[in-house]
Computed example of a mutant assay.
Amino acid sequence: MTTQNCQQVREHVLGFMGSLPGPGQDKDEEVVQRADGVREFGRQWLVHKDEDGASLSASLSDRDDVIEFGLLAREGDTAINILHATLVLDEDEILLNVLSEAHTDFNFDARLNADRLTRLQETLQFYAAHLAAWGSAPSTAKH
């Protein structure tokens, strides 16, 4: 069972993610409805792939009170971690760990609460901006 503070943060993240383009909830893998009402899921999708093989993949999961989301770019045999965020919703605290090979400003750890979400919001905006930039580029892949 998660605390009210954790549930507010979960709703904030999943509400934000639900407003972004993506595969939709029908693409969730192994959805489990917990007794406390939390819907656990995992989702991965190809955002963009061009003729030269450059691609961007996105992911989002919420399992065991850990929300993860990320973007992975590929160019040939090279993979670049654009963003990987892990949000741990613990009874006592909410921890955010963010890693990025592409943007060093997004390498940090932060403690959050429902009233102090600035670093989380910056991370979500960064995710959304990259998703939009790659998603709006011409693509030869079938989604």
Rank of each mutant, 00 (worst) to 15 (best):
N5S: 14
C6E: 14
R10I: 10
R10A: 11
E11N: 09
G15H: 10
G18E: 09
S19N: 13
L20S: 08
P21Y: 07
P21N: 11
P23D: 06
G24E: 09
Q25E: 12
Q25L: 00
Q25W: 00
D26G: 07
D26I: 09
K27C: 12
E29F: 10
E30N: 13
V32M: 05
Q33A: 10
R34N: 15
A35I: 04
D36Q: 14
D36M: 10
R39L: 12
E40H: 10
F41M: 06
W45Q: 08
W45G: 08
L46H: 09
L46M: 13
D50F: 05
D50S: 05
E51G: 06
E51F: 11
D52K: 14
D52S: 15
A58W: 03
S59D: 12
D62P: 02
D64K: 13
I67Q: 02
L72I: 05
A73E: 15
A73H: 14
R74H: 14
D77Q: 13
D77A: 15
N81K: 14
I82K: 09
I82Y: 13
L83K: 11
A85D: 09
T86P: 03
V88D: 11
E91F: 02
N97G: 04
V98W: 09
V98T: 12
L99D: 11
L99F: 02
H103V: 08
T104D: 08
F106T: 03
F108S: 05
D109R: 09
A110Y: 08
R111Q: 05
A114M: 02
R116W: 07
R116K: 14
R116E: 15
R116A: 15
L120G: 01
T123C: 11
L124E: 13
H130T: 03
A132M: 09
A133T: 01
G135N: 06
S136D: 12
P138N: 02
T140G: 15
A141K: 11
H143W: 05
